[in-house]
């Protein structure tokens, strides 16, 4: 690997990092606008035209608020909590293929930071690490409500990780690889051999289980029990103020972006779009259009997250556990068996 390649990778990492932060920033704006739309209000409209500068104003407000560390909180861990939350949210995007290869002059740029051959498992590792931010922050606050929020987050994440893993196994049985790049390549185009190439049409049940688990893992309504304000004041971030609170809230939006990207790559064809090689365009244009297609899919998923948030009420905790253990896990196991039978007898 030459110096130029390292430089290109570095630029790519910085661009992806910047994009995920900007998307997360404007997700907060979108969330408020969409909430306003669902509740027949106008939403933020003071900062700039259509309130477009609202995220910047929010950010400035977060930084300028008073920084409070409670007397009985354990100091280092209190700061480590939100830092871990935002760190784990940001590193998930490293294995996602954002597009095909781009040719600039003599250099061929691979639009993926790294194509490790355990890509999906890496995503799982990062997701399972994400709960530590909430747990450590909740415990370090030395507050009963925070602790309850942290404990809820832990048991919720563990429960839904199992069904998420099981739903992925059925997908892996069909694709035969753990690399996200290869999975995206297998869904090339839209239609071949008399069936859709996108995995959502081959694994509809698996996708349903996966998206429910994605809601639970990102702590979004209807599964946002760790910060359930009707019971727990503010949940795990009751004691947080200023930018430390901002990090927790921001990490949730980055998680939404990354999980949208993962769902688009695994089930909705990633950067592939219909007729991509019948338009008569050059490779570079196809790559750029593919990137735009991927982002369109991601934005759809982010919209879907918000749509559900402002439509479906929050679950009760026992309902959440029942859904995870008694519904999703048996369904996921049945999905694996059906997939195995189909692969064995229909040989597809």
């Amino acid at each position: 690997m030459g110096l130029a390649d390292i430089g290109i990778k570095f630029v790519l990492i910085v661009i992806i990092f910047a994009i995920s932060l900007v998307v997360a920033m404007y997700s907060t704006y979108a969330e408020r606008k969409i909430a306003a739309f669902f509740q027949d209000r106008i939403g933020p409209n003071r900062a700039g035209p259509f309130g477009i500068l609202q995220p910047l104003a929010d950010g400035a407000k977060m930084f300028l608020k008073e920084e409070i560390i409670p007397t009985n909180a354990s100091g280092f861990l209190f700061i480590a909590g939100p830092s871990i939350a935002i760190l784990t949210a940001c590193i998930g995007s490293a294995v996602i293929p954002w597009g095909q290869k781009l040719t600039i002059g003599t250099h061929v740029v691979d639009l993926q930071v790294t194509d490790i051959n355990v890509g999906i498992l890496y995503i799982f590792g990062v997701v399972s690490l994400g709960v530590y931010g909430v747990m450590i922050g909740g415990w370090a606050s030395n507050n009963k409500y925070s602790l309850l929020g942290a404990i809820r987050a832990a048991s919720q994440n563990i429960s839904y990780e199992i069904s998420m893993g099981l739903s992925i196994i059925a997908l892996l049985m069909m694709t035969g690889t753990l690399s996200l790049r290869e999975i995206a390549e297998q869904q090339h185009g839209f239609w071949s051999h008399g069936w859709f190439t996108w995995n959502v049409f081959k694994q509809p049940l698996g996708f349903l289980i996966f998206i429910v688990c994605a809601f639970a893992e990102t702590n979004r309504t209807p599964f946002d029990l760790p910060e359930c304000e009707t019971e727990l004041v503010g949940g795990y971030h009751t004691e947080y103020s200023s930018m430390k609170l901002g990090f927790y809230l921001f990490a949730e939006y980055i998680n939404m972006f990354v999980s949208g990207a993962v769902m688009a790559t695994l089930y909705f064809g990633g950067y592939n779009f219909p007729f991509m090689h019948h338009l008569g365009l050059s490779e570079n244009w196809v790559t750029i259009l593919g990137m735009l297609a991927l982002f369109a899919k991601i934005f759809f998923f982010i919209f879907f997250f918000m749509w559900v948030r402002w439509t479906v009420p929050r679950f009760r905790y026992d309902q959440l556990m029942d859904l995870g253990w008694k519904t999703l896990i048996p369904l996921a196991i049945a999905n694996i068996i059906i997939t195995g039978l189909v692969i064995t007898f229909l040989n597809r």
Partner: peptide, 23 residues
Amino acid sequence: FLAIVNFIVYMGAILVLFLYTLM
């Protein structure tokens, strides 16, 4: 594979449960 499984199972699941119990 062993690395990532150690990461997910030990760091991500078993120790979360340890921490949960201790809390």
